[in-house]
Design a protein around this nucleic acid. Structure first.
Length: 300
DNA sequence: GAGGCGTGGAG
DNA sequence: TCTCCAAGCCT
């Protein structure tokens, strides 16, 4: 028996338990309901990129009520998308979601595309998000490799506590090898492995007592060895340009009229860093400079 | 491929 | 308090 065949064989034994567990324990999230549609799935995926579910929920509800279809968002200025994004973080995602809505309205007749390649061509849609939308919204068969799934596979299949820092070709190969054959089961498997990673096979303290595949988990069978290799670099935040950008944008989100530069000067003492951060926001298209000088969220 | 990019909750 | 980390993407 080849290694690949063996992997597929042992993986097949995981499908049932993991999907059964999902049927019993899946959270009732709004973007999982049928009425969410492909657009709801896409909006949720953008918001969930690096932001926890609990913080996404209220913003998602407001967003979908205000812009129930891509064409509705496409009519707005990008600044309105940034404003409605609120404090979810990484506001470039709001800009990209607005850009994706424009592209969907123009190139796809207002309907979120179902093909992976077409999704991937949209701004802000990478390998993960394209696979997630195709799988969750359209039931297509794709390897959906997010941080949760990578961790579940690292433990259950590879026997390590954590996956590598960056996604490797080996991980993609493994994810494809264990993907169920049919579209419907593959889509269910993708959602189930993500949920297992989010609720049970968590990064800090996994709840192995509640895991449907604990008895087959390669990491546990190896004695739960600690992580080897370079520690994952913790990102410092205090004092960075990111923090300054956040403060500047917070002022502009709250303002309805253009904000004079003098008003922005109060958010950070270091004038050099403040100017650099503001320039960066302008360069990113998150802020529009006006005569005065004054600034506002982008109108066009 | 490494580094930049927000924000806030949990341990 | 401080560290970690949360459904990534882009350059």
């Amino acid at each position: 028996m080849t290694a690949t065949t063996e992997t597929e064989h042992s993986a097949a034994a995981l499908h049932g338990p993991v999907i059964d567990w999902f049927d019993a324990h899946a959270r009732d999230l709004p973007w999982r309901r049928p009425e969410a549609g492909a657009w709801g799935v896409m909006v949720s995926e953008f918001m969930l990129q690096q932001t926890p579910v609990n913080r996404v929920l209220p913003v998602y509800e407001q967003w979908m009520e205000r812009w129930p279809r891509p064409a509705d968002l496409a009519k707005e200025t990008p600044g309105e998308a940034v404003r409605a994004w609120g404090r979810l973080g990484y506001p470039r995602r709001a800009l990209r979601l607005h850009g994706a809505a424009l592209a969907i309205a123009e190139r796809h007749g207002g309907d979120v595309p179902s093909e992976h390649a077409q999704l991937l061509a949209l701004p802000g849609v990478g390998e993960y998000t394209a696979a997630a939308v195709a799988s969750f919204a359209y039931g297509r068969r794709h390897a959906v490799l997010d941080t949760n799934v990578r961790r579940v596979f690292a433990r259950a299949l590879s026997g390590t506590q954590y996956p590598p820092n960056a996604t490797t070709a080996a991980e993609r190969r493994l994810a494809r090898a264990v993907l169920p054959e049919t579209d419907a089961v593959a889509a269910r498997w993708a959602a189930a492995t993500m949920e297992l990673g989010a609720l049970v096979c968590t990064a800090r303290s996994p709840r192995c007592g509640g895991c449907p595949i604990a008895a087959q988990c390669a990491w546990r069978l190896a004695g739960s060895p600690p992580h080897e290799g370079p520690p994952r670099r913790g990102q410092t935040y205090a004092g960075t340009d990111r923090q300054v950008r956040g403060r500047l944008l917070a002022v502009l989100r709250e303002a309805t009229d253009p904000v004079p530069r003098a008003a922005l000067d109060t958010v950070w003492d270091d004038a050099v860093q403040r100017a650099r951060a503001l320039d960066g926001l302008v360069a990113d298209g998150l802020v529009e400079p006006l005569p005065g000088p004054a600034y506002r969220l982008p109108h066009g």
